[in-house]
């Protein structure tokens, strides 16, 4: 199960890389229309949430420490936030639908939040790999103590 956790976090990382690629595809598609970001939207609202849930599921099944499970869960919140930021940025336009400085500032948060999400997924991936390694006796004991109730 720990191996499976490593695999699913690797796939997640790959999905995040693709997600950045799809963002660039959307930004550079000419002419720019709503369809330009279709791949980005589908990956962000279906593929990544599904992979996040799988990660959490495998983390729980692999009896990962609570910190790792919490960390694995975090991208779910960030993804919802990400969709909300996109929605807000798209709605903060002037009367004829043009972008405004404030709207673009909010849109900038979409990029920042994306960077944060990648860092979290990298951390989850590293945690999963550490968990999958055959640990020395001392390290195992520490890990067990961390998992114990406070």
């Amino acid at each position: 199960m720990r191996k499976a956790l490593v695999v699913v976090t690797t796939v997640s990382l790959f999905a995040y890389v693709l997600q950045f690629v799809f963002a660039a595809v959307g930004a550079f598609t000419k002419p720019a229309d709503d369809g330009a970001f279709a791949l980005h939207s589908i990956t962000g609202m279906a593929v990544i949430p599904a992979l996040t849930l799988l990660t959490v599921l495998f983390a729980v099944l692999a009896k990962a420490p609570g910190r790792l499970v919490g960390l694995a869960l975090l991208p779910l919140g960030l993804v919802v936030l990400q969709a909300l930021i996109a929605m807000l940025a798209n709605s903060l336009t002037d009367a004829s639908g043009g972008s405004t400085p404030f709207g673009l500032t909010v849109a900038g948060l979409h990029a920042l939040n994306g960077i944060i999400a990648v860092h979290v997924v990298v951390a989850v991936h590293q945690g999963a790999r550490k968990l999958a390694q055959p640990a020395p006796v001392a390290a195992t004991r520490v890990a067990v103590r961390e998992g114990e109730p406070a």
């Binding site: 609570g66 910190r67 919490g70 936030l81 909300l84 807000l88 709605s91």
Partner: peptide
């Protein structure tokens, strides 16, 4: 329209604050 957006933002901040607080407490 901006009131609807502001309400949404505040709701996000509140939820994120509680969740972040919970995670910090767990740590």
């Amino acid at each position: 329209g901006s009131l609807i957006a502001a309400d949404l933002v505040i709701a996000v901040l509140a939820a994120a604050g509680w969740l972040g607080g919970g995670a910090a407490a767990a740590a």
